[in-house]
Amino acid sequence: VTLFVALYDYEARTEDDLSFHKGSKFQILNSSEGDWWEARSLTTGETGYIPSNYVAPV
């Protein structure tokens, strides 16, 4: 499992996005959609889309 960590805070703009804070960790579920990845937050357990340029591999 590849884990990613948030580099910045992000406020969701749609109900499909995940809001998160810098330092939040994610499991990436689908990275084939270009700049928006489907991810599960390891902090909240919620699933949604995150901007790929806001995260980096742990």
Rank of each mutant, 00 (worst) to 15 (best):
G48A: 03
L42Q: 06
A39G: 05
A6L: 02
Y49E: 03
K22R: 11
S41T: 05
S24L: 05
E38F: 15
E46D: 08
S19F: 03
F26N: 00
I50G: 01
D17K: 15
T44G: 04
T47Q: 10
S32D: 11
L29M: 08
E15H: 12
S32P: 10
V5G: 02
T43E: 15
W36Y: 12
T47S: 08
T2E: 11
W36S: 06
F4C: 07
F26G: 00
I28G: 00
S19L: 01
S32F: 10
T43L: 12
N30E: 07
G23N: 05
W37T: 02
K22C: 07
T43S: 13
S24R: 03
F26E: 00
E38I: 15
G48T: 01
S24V: 10
L3K: 05
Y10R: 03
N30K: 09
Y49M: 14
E33V: 11
V5W: 07
E38L: 15
G23C: 07
E33A: 14
Y49K: 13
L18E: 00
D16I: 13
G45P: 01
V55H: 01
A12M: 04
R40T: 10
L29H: 05
L3N: 05
L29Q: 05
S19K: 04
A56R: 11
N53H: 12
K25F: 15
S31A: 13
E38H: 14
N53Y: 10
T44R: 03
G48N: 01
P57Y: 06
A12E: 03
A6E: 00
Y10K: 01
T2R: 12
D17R: 15
L29K: 05
E33W: 10
S24P: 00
F4P: 00
G48W: 03
T14E: 09
K25G: 05
G34L: 11
T44M: 02
T43D: 14
T43N: 09
Y8A: 08
A12C: 05
Q27T: 10
V1W: 14
L18V: 05
T47Y: 08
Y8G: 05
D9I: 03
D35S: 10
F4D: 00
L42A: 06
A6G: 04
S52N: 06
I50F: 01
W37E: 00
R13V: 12
S41V: 08
K25P: 05
E38P: 05
L18W: 05
D35C: 14
T14V: 07
L18A: 01
L7W: 03
L29E: 05
A12G: 11
R13M: 12
V58L: 14
A56S: 09
L3G: 03
E46H: 09
Y10T: 00
E11Y: 09
V1P: 11
S52Y: 08
Y10G: 00
N53D: 10
P51K: 06
I50Y: 00
E11D: 10
P57T: 05
S41Y: 06
N53M: 11
F20H: 00
E15Q: 12
D17S: 14
V5A: 05
E46G: 06
L42Y: 07
F26W: 07
S52M: 09
P51W: 07
D16F: 15
A56C: 09
S32W: 10
I28P: 03
K25H: 12
V1D: 12
E33S: 13
D9W: 05
T14N: 14
A56Q: 10
P51H: 07
S41G: 03
S52V: 08
H21F: 13
S31Y: 13
F4I: 03
S24T: 15
R40M: 12
D9K: 04
F26I: 04
G45F: 06
W37S: 02
K25Q: 12
A56N: 05
P57E: 09
T47D: 04
T14M: 12
F26K: 00
P51F: 06
T43F: 09
P57R: 08
W37Y: 09
W37N: 01
A39V: 14
L7R: 03
T47M: 09
V1A: 12
D16W: 15
D9E: 06
A12V: 02
G48P: 00
Y54D: 01
N30G: 09
N53T: 11
E11M: 11
N30I: 07
V58I: 13
T2M: 13
D16G: 15
Q27H: 12
S32I: 10
L7M: 09
E15Y: 10
G48H: 03
V1L: 13
S32R: 10
V58N: 05
S31G: 09
A56E: 10
A12K: 08
Y8F: 11
Y8R: 09
L7C: 08
T2S: 11
A39S: 02
S52E: 03
Q27F: 14
E15I: 11
K22F: 05
I50A: 00
Y49G: 03
S52Q: 07
V58Y: 13
E38M: 15
I50P: 01
A6Y: 02
S24D: 15
F26Q: 00
G48M: 04
V5S: 04
Y49W: 15
